[in-house]
Design a protein around this nucleic acid. Structure first.
Lengths: 342, 342
DNA sequence: AATGTTCCTGTAAGCGGTTGCAATTTGCAA
DNA sequence: TTGCAAATTGCAACCGCTTACAGGAACATT
């Protein structure tokens, strides 16, 4: 079933059929004949062939680290919605954080003539930015990542350091001084937050090395909660405890909550707990948490990519989003200090 | 950058370049020349053009209801992994359960010459099966859904009724007689479970109408927990309570847990609670739950689609998977009856 | 009536690959 | 050296659609 069949059926040339399909000028009677033929034969044009001429597949590629991580998929979902309005489709590629695979996918996407690519990768720090820049020259490319470093490629960045700074400001405002940090393995965006945490302590004239700092092995798995509970219960039991604890994700924060309950500390009276990511777990546990606004990131990424695709060859843009602090019931003034502290 | 540029650079015909790329017989020196040219010019063949001749885009389409639902994405993720080994890519389409959009997407996928389509839709009961059958004639099509009805299209089905039957068997074995049911809005797979629940009661010679049956409005949102807690706390406080409660998803089950704690019922001593979906919440709350084995479904769907794509025109297959019951600490014998029951 | 516009059409040349066919080269036995 | 089969190669057609170009019809302008 090709355009030729329709042309024959409607007794016109293929050019006319094509014109009808593309809403170009065609006389009413022929147009009717063609449309009748299309309907009758149930014809669907071949987009491959079309793409070959138009040089646009009307598709984009989205690379993401994991598909079963609801958190990241929120970005992807928004992107899909945004692009489907323009009847673009998206290839979704799961890299598992494997750079080798990432490159393979990008090459494949290019050979499929995608009109643009969005890369969502929290571990983008590792990637060869020269390579990415080269790719950005070949095809519209937008990065979504937590890093503030790369500036010469279009990207949407969530400033986690700033988010962390806001947490520290908030805690300082409440009067907290001993603020512990619970993170995961190094290398991911944890270190960003850790740095910001450290800096805030230094700026307040304290030695961060004297503050409680814990790393949890499986911070990103479903074991995070129990691992954190175990680790923290031990620590909280032994001697001096901080008045506030920040956790790099809500899972760990909930582990802290459980550990606190276990050793008899009341939250927020004895201990303030703040999580990160503002997942529905945070809402459910009344947990104060940092919202990374994934939907906003998705929206920004989609719009930026469209902008780049339209090809006005402007400078690479960098859209910086700031996390929100969602205050709930696990944060309060430290018990011992009732006056304003600053 | 086309095959012509490579041909010129390597001083051979385009046919030879094509042969090199497709591993057909080419003399060693020419092959080397071509490969050098490809490497030098950094050439990537145009898959659109290739697809035009080979009639295969080497891509599949996956329709799913929601992308931000981790639960469904587990299926999709497995499918992606399975297909990427064969260097297939997947278009991921989010239908939001909208049938209109579903059709639009399918038509679009067909026009993009995908080699196959997988539809993941828990509400597939609503769809026009005649339409699907017609589509299955046009392009390899595999359905993933919870329904046992449709039999004449290739599909992977999880038998939720059987899963529910297993729950009822288990509870009967423990000695429970009064077994309540907490579901969501009608229309979705809830009714399947509800039917099975009802049937089990009837088969045991009881009147299901006398059993506790609750419907929660927002069973699929993050409000599920609190809504269930509210609804159940009220019920559990007022008079006779069942010895066991089944909830159609883990969220609601946790709501029950909370409600029980609120009114002073101990789980599992006073009340057995069983959830559904076996999400990580279930693991974390030590909740006995039904596992729908999404990964297995994804695997089965991918393999079935590949089978259909290979085109041996066999009868439509129907792969039936059975949910697992994962026993944890929220289920036990009812307190009042200690001996083996019937 | 001759000329110029405007609007529709069809013809045919691509888009960037693949592949049947025939021509050429090569290898090897006679 | 000659003959013949096997292995390589290039030419050119083709995949299904778009589009530049030119021809033709219809109508308005002098």
């Amino acid at each position: 079933m090709t355009i030729n069949d329709i042309a024959r059926e409607a007794q016109v040339s293929t050019a006319t059929v094509s014109r009808v399909m593309n809403n170009k000028a065609v006389s009413t009677d022929r147009k009717a004949r063609v449309e009748a033929a299309i309907a009758k034969l149930n014809y669907v044009p071949n987009r491959m062939a079309r793409a070959l001429m138009s040089k646009s597949s009307h598709a984009i590629g989205v690379l993401t680290t994991s598909m079963s991580n609801q958190y990241y998929m929120e970005i992807t979902e928004v992107i899909e919605r945004r692009f489907r309005d323009k009847s673009y489709m998206q290839f979704l590629c799961c890299t598992d954080g494997d750079q080798e695979r990432e490159r393979t996918y990008i090459a494949d996407l290019v050979s499929r003539q995608v009109d643009g690519i969005i890369i969502i990768d929290p571990a983008l720090e590792n990637i060869d930015s020269g390579y990415l820049k080269a790719m950005a020259g070949q095809v519209p490319l937008v990065l979504v990542h937590p890093l503030a470093g790369v500036t010469d490629i279009d990207s949407v960045v969530i400033d986690q350091q700033l988010g962390m700074a806001r947490v520290m400001d908030y805690l300082a405002g409440l009067g907290h001084i001993d603020i512990g940090f619970v993170g995961g393995v190094v290398g991911y965006s944890y270190s960003l937050k850790e740095d910001a945490w450290r800096r805030a302590h230094v700026e307040a004239g304290r030695d961060p090395a004297k503050q409680l700092l814990v790393h949890i092995e499986d911070a990103n798995t479903e074991n995070a909660v129990s691992q954190t509970r175990l680790a923290l219960a031990r620590l909280l039991n032994s001697g001096t405890v901080p008045t506030a604890l920040f956790a790099c994700n809500d899972l760990m924060a909930i582990g802290i909550l459980e550990a606190a309950a276990e050793v008899g500390l009341r939250v927020p009276d004895d201990l303030t707990v703040i999580g990160h990511d503002n997942t529905f777990l945070a809402a459910h546990n009344k947990l104060t948490s940092v919202d990374l606004k994934m939907k906003s990131m998705g929206l920004a990424a989609a719009d930026l990519l469209m902008h780049v695709m339209e090809g006005r060859d402007s400078e690479p843009r960098r859209i910086l989003l700031t996390p929100d602090l969602v205050r709930r019931e696990t944060s309060a003034r430290p018990r011992s200090e009732d006056g304003t502290h600053h």
